[in-house]
Design a binder for these strands. Structure first.
Lengths: 127, 127
DNA sequence: CTCTCTGCAAATTATTTGCATGATA
DNA sequence: TATCATGCAAATAATTTGCAGAGAG
């Protein structure tokens, strides 16, 4: 694989966020760096980066496919209040199983993120 | 919501399989029952059934959205050999976590299903 | 110089919607 | 008979592909 500034731009954009963005967002941000980059190039480079393991793709039930430059082992919390996807360190999670043939797993939590819970508490205290 | 044979057919098709099919498959099978059913009706009924909780939608990284009539709490194993998605009973899984605000989680295992592992063993024994 | 990568536009594929008609309660 | 659901076709969204030319090594 050859070096191309387009591929680097796509990768850097993804590295600079923890928001697990979708293709449209990545495309918009990358255009700020390379104004004439094409959406096809963004798709192609995301596939490339995925195939060499530099990024991950993630599917959260009911949301569009999103991408993540954090390839370390971690879980996600999908916030049902604000829709955000928050990284969860595996030190907070303990999974045991007795299933043969498994080499890895993905775990996604659904609930309310810290931020939203804090906002709720704040508004309750006012009353 | 009213009774319609189209909705019943979509639901029955999904109940009669554990293969977590995608919309195209569900549509094809439903046409065997109601030959002139439209794909739009299939989509609309899947949404309906989803919203009343009679079915689940599942996203496995890199695969199209699939549907499942098994709404009980269970996990999935995505087989990296044959692509099949196999149900895993939660009695085989133990998850502990210290994350606030969580009300449920989805866990997906990746690896090789029983069937594929058996086939591998069989072909090794031959040699 | 060679071969990969790009931009563009067109082609696919997936999903949703508008609307007149048909079916259910 | 009052709605709700359907089929059809067209609209929209998401993703992929073909191809001629540009860029990397």
């Amino acid at each position: 694989m050859r070096f191309s500034k387009q591929r680097e731009a796509v990768y850097n954009v993804l590295c600079q966020t923890t928001s697990h963005p979708d293709v449209a967002w990545i495309y918009a941000r990358t255009r700020e760096i390379i104004p004439n980059i094409s959406i096809a190039t963004v798709y192609r480079n995301l596939q490339e980066l995925l195939s060499i393991g530099k990024i991950k793709k993630l599917s959260a039930e009911g949301y569009a496919e999103r991408y993540d430059a954090n390839v370390s082992d971690h879980a996600h919390l999908v916030c049902s209040c604000c829709g955000k996807i928050v990284d969860i360190d595996m030190s907070q999670v303990d999974v045991k199983h007795s299933i043969a043939g498994v080499d890895r797993y993905e775990i996604t939590f659904y609930g309310c993120c810290d931020e939203c819970r804090n906002n709720k508490d704040a508004s309750q205290n006012k009353q």
